[in-house]
Computed example of a mutant assay.
Amino acid sequence: MTDATRRIWLCADDYGISPGVNRGIRELIERGRLNATSVMVVGPAIGRDDVRALQEAVATGPHCAIGLHATLTAPFHPVTMHYRPLRDEQFLPLGKMLRAGLLRRLDPEMVRAELAAQIAAFAKLFGRPPDYVDGHQHVQTFPQVRNAFLAAVKAGAPNAWVRQSGRIRPLAQRLDMPKAVLLDTLSAGFRKRASRQGITFNPGFAGAYDFNKTADFGVLMAGFLAGLPDGGLIMCHPGHVDDVLISLDPFTDQRAREYAFLASDAFPRLLDAQRATLAA
Results as ranks from 00 to 15, higher is better:
Ala4Arg: 13
Arg6Gly: 02
Trp9Arg: 09
Ala12Glu: 08
Asp14Tyr: 14
Ile17Glu: 11
Val21Arg: 04
Asn22Cys: 14
Gly24Ile: 07
Arg26Lys: 10
Arg26Phe: 07
Arg26Trp: 06
Ala36Ser: 13
Ala36Asn: 02
Met40Phe: 14
Val41Cys: 09
Val41Pro: 06
Pro44Thr: 08
Pro44Ala: 07
Ile46His: 00
Asp50Ser: 14
Val51Phe: 00
Leu54Cys: 04
Glu56Trp: 07
Ala57Pro: 05
Val58Asn: 02
Thr60Asp: 10
His63Asn: 06
Leu68Pro: 05
His69Tyr: 09
Ala70Gly: 12
Thr73Ile: 14
Ala74Ser: 15
Phe76Ser: 03
Pro78Phe: 03
Thr80Gly: 01
Met81Ile: 04
Met81Cys: 03
His82Pro: 00
Tyr83Ser: 04
Arg84Glu: 09
Arg87Gln: 14
Glu89Gln: 15
Gln90Pro: 04
Leu92Ile: 13
Lys96Cys: 03
Met97Asp: 00
Met97Pro: 02
Arg99Ile: 13
Ala100Arg: 09
Gly101His: 04
Leu102Trp: 12
Arg104Ala: 14
Arg105Ala: 02
Met110Gln: 11
Ala113Asn: 04
Ala116Leu: 07
Ala117Gly: 00
Ala121Leu: 10
Ala123Gly: 11
Ala123Arg: 12
Ala123Cys: 10
Leu125Glu: 02
Gly127Lys: 10
Arg128Pro: 05
Asp131Gly: 15
Gly135Lys: 07
Gly135Cys: 10
